[in-house]
Structures are given as structure tokens and as C-alpha cells.
């Protein structure tokens, strides 16, 4: 029975990988679900926006990380701070041009003060920032700076080794 669920979960996982180029608009409760998940998937959450220069500069590092680890229990989720009112002209074309082996969501929660501290108390709100979590293994590491392809891979490897 358990096995069946695993196969099903794996299928859903693969399916979402294939559909990597699609994006959606989400609310914070969905982020909250990821934060409190108790499975053995490592989530790499990047808070960014298409208008943010350092974010766009580090975006390829996340593309590389996602592709390198796409056959592992790793999910790269790019949470965009673009405005929902401009979704079609900002995030949608960007993701079409820059597909990723992961999920891209527009987090439509403009009352930032209500949720920033739930990501990390150290976060002042400037982007980009990254959170690496694994519920099963009690890993939760916050990085308030941008990455290069090398530094992201290195940080990821060190973090999940904990």
C-alpha cells in the first residue's frame, strides 16, 4: 500500500517536472504548507522578482541546481514578488524564455509585514533570499544573499549534509 503511494507521489513529481514551464499565482497558505511539510523532499525556495536585477542575475544558478538534482527528492520553487496585476506581462513571458526544472509561482501577498518574519526573522524584505528546508531532517537554513552557480551548489550540498 505504502509503495503504491510512493509510486503515485513519484509520478506526480515527474509530471510536475515535465510541466516545469507553467506558472501559477499562489497565496501564503501554500508557502506555509511547504514550510510545515514533514516529508523527505528538500525544498529550495527562492524569493525573487523579474524586476530585481540581482535576482535575475542569479536565476541561472537555480536553473542549473534544479536540472542537476531533478532525479532526486529536491524541489526548486521560485517564488516571485512580481505583482499579480502584471502577471501576464512580467512573469509569464519571463518563464517562457527561461524555463526551469522546478516550480515558478507568483506569491500574491502584498501585506509583506504579515508574513516576512514567518520566512525568517533575519529577513528585512530585500530580495533575493533563499530558504532550504527538509521537514523530515529538520533542516531549515535561510540565506539573505545572492548566489553564483558554484556557491549555490556548494551551499545546497553542505546544507543537506547537516
Amino acid at each position: 500500500m505504502m509503495k503504491k503511494y510512493f509510486v503515485l507521489a513519484a509520478c506526480i513529481c515527474c509530471l510536475s517536472m515535465v510541466k516545469a514551464q507553467t506558472t501559477s499565482i499562489i497565496k501564503f497558505d501554500e508557502v506555509q504548507r511547504i514550510l510545515s511539510s514533514k516529508n523527505d523532499t528538500t525544498y529550495v525556495l527562492n524569493f525573487w522578482a523579474t524586476w530585481c536585477m540581482p535576482c535575475v542575475k542569479e536565476y541561472p544558478a537555480f536553473q542549473t541546481l534544479a536540472t542537476r538534482h531533478k532525479n532526486e527528492k529536491v524541489k526548486v520553487i521560485m517564488l516571485s514578488m512580481d505583482f499579480a496585476s502584471e502577471y501576464e506581462k512580467t512573469l509569464v513571458p519571463y518563464i517562457k524564455a527561461h524555463p526551469i526544472d522546478g516550480r515558478v509561482c507568483l506569491l500574491d501577498e502584498l501585506d509583506y509585514n504579515a508574513w516576512i518574519n514567518k520566512i525568517d526573522a533575519k529577513w528585512d524584505g530585500a530580495i533575493p533570499v533563499t530558504l532550504i528546508i527538509n521537514g523530515n531532517r529538520h533542516i531549515r537554513s535561510f540565506f539573505g544573499h545572492d548566489f553564483t552557480t558554484e556557491s549555490l551548489e556548494q551551499t545546497f550540498t553542505q546544507t543537506i549534509k547537516q
Binding site: 509583506y112 516576512i116 530585500a126 530580495i127
Partner: peptide, 9 residues
């Protein structure tokens, strides 16, 4: 005191 997203200095 409040927090907000913004462009980093």
C-alpha cells in the same frame, strides 16, 4: 516597525 519587500540598497 514594519517589514516590506523592496530593492536592496
Amino acid at each position: 516597525e514594519t517589514k516590506s519587500v523592496g530593492c536592496g540598497v
